[in-house]
Each structure stands twice: as structure tokens, then as C-alpha cells.
Design a protein around this nucleic acid. Sequence first.
DNA 1: ACTATGTCCTGCGAGC
DNA 2: TGCTCGCAGGACATAG
Length: 301
Amino acid sequence: MTFNDNVTRIALQSLPQPDAIVFSASVPELPEVETIANGLDRRVAGDHIDSVWLGSKPEPLKSPAKEIAKTLEGTRIEKVRRVGKHIVFDLASGKQPAQWIVHLGMSGRLLVTEASADIAPHTHAIVKLSSGREVRFVDPRRFGRLSVTRADKNGKPAGFTGPGSEPLGIDFDLFVSLFRKRKTPIKAALLNQKLLHGVGNIYADESLYRAGIRPRRRAGQLTRDELKRLHYAVQTVLQEAIALGGSSVSDYVDASGEEGFFQLQHRVYGRTNAYCYVCNTPIKRIVVAGRGTHYCPKCQK
DNA sequence: ACTATGTCCTGCGAGC
DNA sequence: TGCTCGCAGGACATAG
């Protein structure tokens, strides 16, 4: 069993401590971040931020520590939502509206805990709430990033919109234009957050499988019919995953303490040498854009 | 302007 | 059993 095959299993592990709810996913992509953001919104929207502690490790901080603390402290959390793979906390205060932006990277977790709960290793930020609870950011691998947005010089609120287009709801003409004339493999284009944001390695592979397109095909060479299938596949695969609460590998828990079960629906990702559900051909694993890439050599052209 | 590749970082599993 | 080593990933930097 390779590392990747882990995603085909449901990991049975202990539920979170009663005084802490953990919001995390291994390799969080759009559906996982959506589920996590919704869960956070249900638990902390309306609460106020009293103070912020930031750790000494600089990597997770995209904005200066002072600016993050200053921006968050004294605000009310209006809404927690997803933009691309980012979790956005919309903040209101007497002054300008602001936002706290969290990217979970590979191993980032957000915890909502009682203040008395033990502090986990690799805790990089603690946000103290008026309710007495805390939102904690924990990230062993430190690929996650924290930043803030504030009003610009002209007083216009800086609204975080993400690096690219939202895959859910993008119309077909815009979808087509993203890939026009691109020589890069379609898999690499799907991973490029400046084009579509939110699609990562798992859902890129699953989308291409459903669309019947090989991952190394040049993006700009795809026919209109193939792009039509891909457009449909990307949206349905993401929507199905959201409906199931995302893909869980180890300790992904949503607001109600339930795990995501989309990993049971993976048809190619992590199924190297396993048989294609449609044609029984062994699933191949190659490397595209430096990422493990899984496809069916018979179903995908 | 676009594309390809290397880097970061830790935990896990394979293999000796 | 216990160790070392290689690999997994998203975003960004850098080079071509």
C-alpha cells in the first residue's frame, strides 16, 4: 500500500476532545474548505475578537504579525466563508471593515476550543473570543498562511476575491477562455489557482477522469466538446464532494463532528494499479507538474 | 507572457 | 525492533 492509497480508507480515530472542535482536512481543496468555513461560521459568527497571540515561526504569516493582531483585535466576526481554497473571516468594527484570510496549506487546522484546552504542538496563532473560547491555527508543516486585508488608501474596503475564477458557477464561455492557447498540460492548468481557484490535485484527477481527458493533453488543444465535458465534470465533482462533506484522510471533522466521506467516491486518485470501475483497466500513476497524477489509460483519451 | 522546475516542511511508511 | 530515507502536497520564486 502506497502513501496515496490511504485516502481510499476511512481512518478510524478518536473524536475530538469535548472542549475542542477541529476543522481540518489533509490536502484541503474547495469542498473541504467550503465545509470547514461553513462549520466555523456556525460556531463563531457573531463572536468578538478580544486579542490575538501569534507564534514566533514567521512562515505562516503573510502579513506582518503586528498588522494581523491590530486588524483582528476589537472586531466582530460577521461571517466565515470560502473563497477559492481560502477561509475568509469578514470582520466589522467601528472603523473600516476588514478580513482575516486563512489558507490551510497541506496540514493546517483551525480549532475552536475552550481557553483551558491544552495547546497542541505547532500552534501558530490563538485568537481569543469574547465568549471565552479561542480559535487556534495549528500547522505542523507550515505550508498554511495567515493574512489580513484592510481598507485601501482611499478608504475603499479591500475585499478578498481570490486569485482566479470560482469553479462553481463559472459560465462555459469564460471557462473556455481560461484555457485558450495554453500549451501547458490540462492537469497543470486545472491546478493553476490564477485560472480556476479551489481545484487541487485530487479533484483535478477526478474531473479529468469523468471528462474522459488525459491529464497530459495540452489545455489549448482540447475540443469544445471536451471542454464542455470538463466544465460539467469539475462542477459536479466539487458539488458532490461538498454534499458528502469533502474527502477525509485523517482527522477532518466538520461542525457537527462528522467526517467527510467523499474519499469513497474517488475513482482514480490514490487508486494506482487498482481496476477502473468502468473498463477494468489498471489505473496508471504518472507525474504531471510535479504532482502525482492518476488516470485510466483506456477511458481517458 | 507563459511555462517548467526547485524549494519549503513534517509525518508517515517502506525497507533494511 | 528500530532506524534511515524518500515521498506527499500548494504556493511561490526563479530560470528559461
